[in-house]
Computed example of a mutant assay.
Amino acid sequence: MECTNNKHPFVFLFWLVFLTPLVCSQLYYNFYDSTCPNLTRIVRYNVLSAMNNDTRIAASLLRLHFHDCFVNGCDGSVLLDTTSTFTGEKNALPNKNSVRGFEVIDTIKSALEKACPATVSCADILTLAAREAVFLSKGPFWVVPLGRRDGTTASESEANNLPSPFDPLENITAKFVAKGLELKDVAVLLGAHTFGFAQCFTFKARLFNFGGTGKSDPTLDGSLLQNLQNLCPNQASSDTNLAPLDPVTTNTFDNMYYRNLLNNSGLLLSDQALMGDNTTASLVNMYSKWPLLFFRDFAVSMEKMGRISVLTGQQGQVRTNCRFVN
């Protein structure tokens, strides 16, 4: 779509710089200012309440948003339960017994339906909840453009193709590029692994049988290796045990993730793989030294991700219950 044209260069530049992103994307920073003025306050209160009850929930909400946007766009499809007409995404392999935070979104939606009925989409709620989860964990704050509409179907098959901790970096990058992102966004958004936990099965091969050698990953820090082997013994019963993605500042959103990578202490092989590419290794080194630079770039990449294949205008719907189509 051609956004605008103007004979006056200065006026055109003003529109291009300040207004074009709003017009072209049909997402607006002030979308709910008049229809639901307490939106941010309600989301923040409920995310903070959830964090007070569960220290893991902040990272879980951020991951939930990621898993939503990478499957047919940021349309709240990950929140839908399976029905007689379609299979939901919750039981896809990357999500089953893994993604969480649905009850928090339900609570926020219930509060918003009382404050401003049939107004705020579940997709926007999830996007805002992810931002609040980061900000309330001492991470960056960014202004979220709003106006997403909710999808009316889900795709288990697409969810099964989400970027995986077992993927090599080139495959992960290809999946990001397919969504309109780039290699820098890979390095930046993987920085979300600066808080939260991973199940042992996602990295256990690094501990006991790396590459089928019957030995541990030689690049993994020795002290971390010993701790992880104690936490995740080489038996199936330990597969669902949890290990912190960042054992240093586990529940804080900071740049420790990158400092860990420099020390060969990345938990997932897909994380440590950032050090094997010249471009991403340079970014790791830079973000390890300059946390505010990481915060700035993370906010930019999050906004980019939050615009993936959004439904706007009359597309989709505004669900009254995030688990079901109206």
Score class of each variant (00 low, 15 high):
Leu93Asp: 11
Gly101Ser: 08
Ser216Thr: 05
Val120Asn: 04
Ser164Trp: 03
Lys138Phe: 06
Leu146Ser: 02
Asp150Thr: 14
Ser216Val: 06
Asn160Tyr: 09
Ala192Trp: 11
Ala192Lys: 12
Val143Gln: 15
Ile108Arg: 01
Gln229Glu: 01
Ile125Ser: 03
Lys175Gln: 10
Arg149Ser: 02
Gly191Lys: 00
Val104Tyr: 10
Val134Ser: 01
Pro94Glu: 06
Gln226Asp: 06
Phe208Arg: 04
Leu183Ala: 08
Val143Thr: 12
Asn209Gln: 07
Ala130Tyr: 07
Gly191Arg: 00
Pro94Trp: 08
Pro233Asp: 09
Ser164Pro: 01
Ile108Val: 09
Ser216Lys: 15
Cys200Met: 10
Leu231Tyr: 02
Gly180Ala: 04
Leu126Phe: 04
Leu220Val: 10
Asn230Ala: 12
Val186Trp: 04
Pro218Trp: 10
Leu162Tyr: 07
Leu207Ile: 06
His193Glu: 12
Lys96Cys: 01
Gln226Phe: 00
Glu113Tyr: 04
Arg100Cys: 06
Glu170Ser: 14
Pro168Trp: 09
Gly191Phe: 00
Phe201Ala: 02
Leu128Ser: 02
Ala115Phe: 04
Leu189Asn: 01
Val186His: 10
Ser155Glu: 09
Gly214Tyr: 14
Ala133Asp: 10
Arg148Leu: 04
Lys215Ala: 07
Leu225Met: 05
Ala154Ile: 07
Thr127Gly: 07
Cys122Leu: 08
Asn234Phe: 08
